[in-house]
């Protein structure tokens, strides 16, 4: 039985942590973190086979945040899951922090893949998924890419290889929030139609509402049952979803909350607790 309310609260807490991290440390990417909050909540608090007390467990499921700039959301999920203290969250991007500006596996407990430079995560996830096949281990690999990121040719090198090799323990979420740094993806890079592209490379595809917990859970369940192909889940999302004043304003791609905005976030998302 999926506890939808619990997972929705996990997602709310991720968004609230992102606000706290960006407000206190005065840096980071708020709205790209918000758009993946629900997907991360489902993966870390429901779907993934993981054990925070054994972060190097060889048969754990793996997660790759290809759009590494959304790492405040990932750091929140990891801290709330118990990989490290929530006290660390407010050290984001500060000197000597374990929470680098983009994910760095050797420093941050629970981070499976170093990312940040866009376009690489599907390939890294493919390597992890192939390693399971070679080592005869049973685990799933989940990757989240952005939609602007689909402009990187390497994404499609990986899509072709994974489809060709029928790597079924690999699932890629496309966080289709329709924006990249310079504006809408339609205007800047033209990735549509997205679902058809993955299908053409031999992937099983699904389209979901990336903020609907139930749909995310079910899509992951379906992806697991696909045993002859990798899975792409095109998640329609809203950049900044969760705080109305961020929605539709792409300056929140990278921006710091003012005191007034922070107070508004507290009203919308609740007070912050470690």
């Amino acid at each position: 039985m999926v506890d939808i309310k619990f997972l929705e609260d996990c997602a709310r807490r991720i968004r609230r942590d992102v606000v706290e991290m960006v407000y206190r440390t005065k840096d980071g990417h708020p709205s790209p973190s918000f758009s993946v909050a629900d997907i991360l909540a489902v993966l870390y608090f429901h779907s993934m086979k993981i054990d925070p007390s054994d972060p190097e467990w060889v048969e754990r499921d793996r997660f790759v945040l290809s759009k590494g700039h959304a790492c405040p959301a990932l750091y929140s999920a990891l801290a709330r899951k118990g990989y490290f203290s929530t006290k660390e969250l407010t050290t984001l991007r500060m000197l000597n922090t374990n929470l680098q500006g983009h994910p760095y596996a050797p420093k941050t407990t629970g981070v499976d893949a170093t990312t940040g430079s866009l376009g690489n995560g599907v390939s890294v996830g493919l390597g992890m998924a192939l390693a399971a096949r070679i080592r005869k281990l049973d685990y799933q690999v989940y990757v989240v890419t952005g939609d602007g990121e689909l402009g990187e040719g390497l994404i499609w090198e990986a899509a072709m290889a994974a489809g060709h090799q029928r790597v079924s323990n690999l699932t890629v979420f496309v966080d289709n929030n329709n924006y990249q740094s310079g504006g809408t993806v339609e205007k800047v890079s033209g990735p549509y139609p997205i679902k058809e592209k993955w299908a053409d490379f031999g992937w099983h595809t699904q389209s979901i509402d990336g903020h609907d917990i139930k749909q995310i859970v079910e899509a992951i369940n379906i992806a697991k049952t696909v045993i002859d192909r990798p899975s792409a889940i095109i998640a329609k999302t809203i950049k900044g979803k969760g705080l109305p004043f961020m929605v539709g304003d792409n300056t929140w791609h990278k921006r710091v909350y003012t005191d007034a905005e922070y107070e508004q976030a507290e009203i919308e998302l609740g007070g912050w607790t470690e």
Binding site: V64, A105, D112, A113, T114, N120, S123, V124, G125, L126, G127, M128, A129, L130, A131, I134, L154, A158, A161
Partner: peptide, 8 residues
């Protein structure tokens, strides 16, 4: 990049 995933 796949080699990175294999090695990790």
């Amino acid at each position: 990049a796949v080699s990175s995933g294999l090695a990790s």
